[in-house]
Simulated scan of single mutants.
Amino acid sequence: MFTIEHEFDATVITLVDEGDDPRDYLQEDITIQSFEDCVVVEQMDETTETVVRVVFSHAQLRELAAALDLPEGVYRLQSRTKA
């Protein structure tokens, strides 16, 4: 399950781990905040009780999304130019 909220300066997406099986170990919620200049991913680390934060540029996030569907290798995304 996930939620999407539009705030003043960011779009906030929260991913909730519901698990496929009741015996699954569920992970903490993940919060993704998309700002004009970056995307912030946060998740509570239950062992240290601290929030772990990773900040991506929008270019890094595009590369991550592309990498999820590619085989092993080295890649460089090229921007499309309109003709």
Rank of each mutant, 00 (worst) to 15 (best):
M1C: 01
F2Q: 02
T3E: 05
E5W: 02
E5V: 00
H6E: 03
E7C: 07
F8N: 08
A10R: 08
T11N: 04
V12I: 07
I13V: 06
I13K: 03
T14P: 01
T14Q: 06
T14H: 01
L15Y: 04
L15N: 01
D17F: 00
E18W: 00
G19I: 02
D21Q: 07
P22S: 05
P22G: 06
R23S: 08
R23D: 13
D24C: 00
D24W: 01
Y25I: 00
Q27Y: 04
E28A: 13
E28W: 00
E28R: 02
D29Y: 01
T31H: 14
E36R: 06
E36T: 13
D37P: 06
D37W: 04
D37I: 01
C38P: 06
C38I: 08
C38R: 15
V41Y: 10
V41M: 11
V41C: 07
V41E: 06
E42A: 07
Q43K: 15
Q43D: 08
M44F: 07
M44K: 11
D45N: 13
D45P: 05
E46L: 07
E46M: 06
T48C: 00
T48H: 01
E49M: 12
T50E: 15
V52K: 09
V52A: 11
V52L: 11
V52F: 05
V54R: 12
V55M: 05
V55C: 11
F56A: 13
S57I: 03
H58V: 07
A59C: 09
A59Y: 10
A59H: 12
Q60R: 03
Q60G: 10
L61K: 08
R62Y: 06
L64P: 15
L64I: 03
L64T: 13
A66Q: 14
A66T: 06
A66V: 00
A66S: 13
A67S: 09
A67N: 12
L68S: 14
D69F: 05
D69I: 04
D69K: 10
E72W: 02
E72M: 09
E72V: 11
G73V: 15
V74Y: 08
Y75S: 12
R76F: 03
R76T: 13
L77F: 03
Q78D: 11
Q78H: 12
S79T: 14
S79V: 12
T81A: 12
K82Y: 04
K82R: 12
